[in-house]
């Protein structure tokens, strides 16, 4: 075991400070009176105020942005995970041919640059009158989340012991019953982990959201927040307050699920 001395903790603290500094500073700015933001670099204000928060939620529909992001990300996750769990199960555990080709295609799909498909997707969504709707974003988001979730999920399915299926077969279960009653429940932790990553991915998407939903009331968080900038004056008070508000749900999500997130991110990057 390597020893953990003072020097180690010093570097650790320094590292955490650097990583967290933008958040700390943004938070401290958000509670300053607006005048102070532009006049001083003091860490703490002597007159903390919530006026920037009030302004942030009244000048733009911030909570509507969050609701939109939440709906789009949830629906995307649900659809992607449904298809992905079928596909990963079949690819990892059923005797089908061309497994390597199928996985290769899926990996390749997860590498496609979004910019390469955006104009046909834009035409497609416009032709069906889906611009400024939730479905108009869910469809392109599937392009990102489906390959990704198949890729992550298949490692979780692969880890479940083969013997379980054998005994289910002996008990007379049909292949689909085996999947639904035996394997799927066992894979739930993995599916949940994948769902968190898919959700975060869809929540954070910018390019499609910017192009397809141009109506303010249908914007998602990433696009909505970039709209606080205006040509003439930059309302740093509003921006920092809005940033704090939209970061809180992510911080809570990360704090609760950090172990799962790490296991999802690293799945498949190491041989086990």
């Amino acid at each position: 075991m390597k020893k953990t001395g003072f020097g180690f903790y010093f570097f650790l603290a320094l590292f955490i400070f650097i990583v967290m500094f933008p958040f700390i500073w943004v938070f401290l700015t958000s509670i300053k009176p607006v005048g102070e933001i532009f006049s001083s670099f003091n860490w703490f204000t002597s007159n903390p105020t919530l006026e920037s928060y009030e302004s942030a939620i009244t000048s733009r529909p911030l909570f509507k942005y969050m609701l939109n992001s939440f709906i789009v990300a949830s629906v995307t996750t649900l659809i992607a995970l449904t298809f992905a769990s079928f596909t990963s199960y079949a690819v990892t555990r059923l005797p089908i041919r061309f497994k390597g080709t199928i996985l290769g295609l899926i990996l390749a799909s997860s590498m496609f640059p979004q910019i390469a498909i955006i104009s046909p997707i834009f035409n497609f969504v416009s032709d069906f009158g889906l611009r400024n709707s939730y479905l108009g974003l869910v469809i392109p988001y599937i392009t990102i989340s489906l390959p990704l979730s198949i890729w992550i999920l298949s490692t979780f399915f692969q880890k479940i012991p083969k013997e379980l299926e054998e005994s289910a077969k002996l008990d007379g279960a049909t292949p689909f019953q085996t999947f639904r009653k035996i394997i799927f429940p066992l894979a739930t932790p993995g599916i949940f982990t994948t769902a968190i990553l898919t959700f975060i991915g869809a929540w954070n998407e910018y390019l499609f959201a910017l192009t397809i939903n141009t109506e303010d009331s249908m914007r998602t968080i990433p696009v909505g927040i970039s709209m606080y900038q205006s040509q003439y004056a930059v309302p740093w008070g509003d921006i920092t307050a809005a940033t704090v508000i939209v970061t809180i749900p992510i911080v809570v999500l990360v704090l609760i699920f950090q172990r799962r997130i790490v296991s999802g991110l690293t799945s498949g990057s190491v041989k086990e």
């Binding site: 650790l12 590292f15 955490i16 990583v19 967290m20 933008p22 958040f23 500073w25 943004v26 700015t29 975060i200 929540w203 954070n204 910018y206 968080i221 990433p222 696009v223 927040i225 970039s226 606080y228 900038q229 930059v234 740093w236 921006i239 920092t240 940033t243 939209v246 970061t247 992510i250 911080v251 999500l253 990360v254 704090l255 950090q258 997130i261 790490v262």
Partner: peptide
């Protein structure tokens, strides 16, 4: 604690972090 603190920058939307940095760089 360190795991959480290094996950937060990764988890927030890039557009949000870009807005934060545009303030820090102003």
């Amino acid at each position: 604690l360190i795991r959480a603190s290094i996950l937060v920058p990764w988890a927030i939307p890039t557009a949000v972090s870009a807005m934060m940095w545009s303030y820090l760089y102003d």
